[in-house]
Every structure is written in structure tokens, then in C-alpha cells.
């Protein structure tokens, strides 16, 4: 539903269906929209996830080190879930978003 919305809207929508790890979020969104399927685009999506954690809309879970270079070798791959506040924001967005 929110494939054509701002990246953060889409991240919340993805996490509402199930918890996801860094690379799952990044790869899903980078394939959906043009200009994001490169290292820079993927880093921008990861940055948006970090900002959502900071805003308290997304919770951080367990992390593992990306030893195999799935996304960014040597960096953390973290499990994310949507927070209660994130759910409230998402419910509000669903009523307001123009399809």
C-alpha cells in the first residue's frame, strides 16, 4: 500500500507485518524504488531505520556482526520491530495517506 510513500512510511508498514533484520528492510525497499538499488541508496534506507529507532517508533532487538558481507561487512545486522508508538503513527498514516 505504501510502496510509493516516503521511505519511513514504508519501513513502518513492513515492520507492522513482521519483525525484520537490517538487510531484509534495506533489500526490500531498494528493489521497490528506482535510484535506491546501490550502496548509497541502501545506506540511506539504513539511516532512515536508525532515525526511526531514535524517534521511538521502532525497537532494536538482537544484533549480529555481518561476517559474511551480506550487507556491510563488519557492521551490525539488527532485528527491528515496530513499537506501540510506531503502531499509533502507522494507524494514523493509513487514514491520511493518499494512495
Amino acid at each position: 500500500m505504501m510502496e510509493d510513500c516516503p521511505v519511513k512510511f514504508r519501513i513502518l508498514e513492513l515492520l507492522d507485518s513482521k519483525g525484520m533484520r537490517t538487510e531484509e528492510i534495506v533489500f526490500t525497499i531498494s528493489k521497490e524504488r528506482p535510484g535506491y538499488d546501490n550502496d548509497y541508496g541502501k545506506a540511506m534506507i539504513k539511516y532512515d531505520v536508525i532515525e526511526l529507532v531514535s524517534a521511538g517508533l521502532v525497537n532494536e532487538g538482537k544484533s549480529v556482526i555481518d561476517e559474511e558481507g551480506i550487507f556491510q561487512k563488519g557492521k551490525l545486522l539488527t532485528d527491528y520491530t515496530i513499537s506501540d508508538l510506531g503502531k499509533t503513527y502507522l494507524d494514523d498514516l493509513r487514514q491520511k495517506v493518499k494512495a
Binding site: D4, C5, P6, V7, F9, R33, P34, G35, Y40, G41, D92, L93, K96, V97, K98
Partner: peptide
Amino acid sequence: LGKLGEMKRTVVQFRAA
């Protein structure tokens, strides 16, 4: 920065953003 696409996606969502 390659963010004009994101700008378009944000501006159309007037009520939400």
C-alpha cells in the same frame, strides 16, 4: 543527494507529511 524522488513522494502526502 538523489533525494528529489523522495521529495515528490513527500509533497503529495499533504495530510500525512
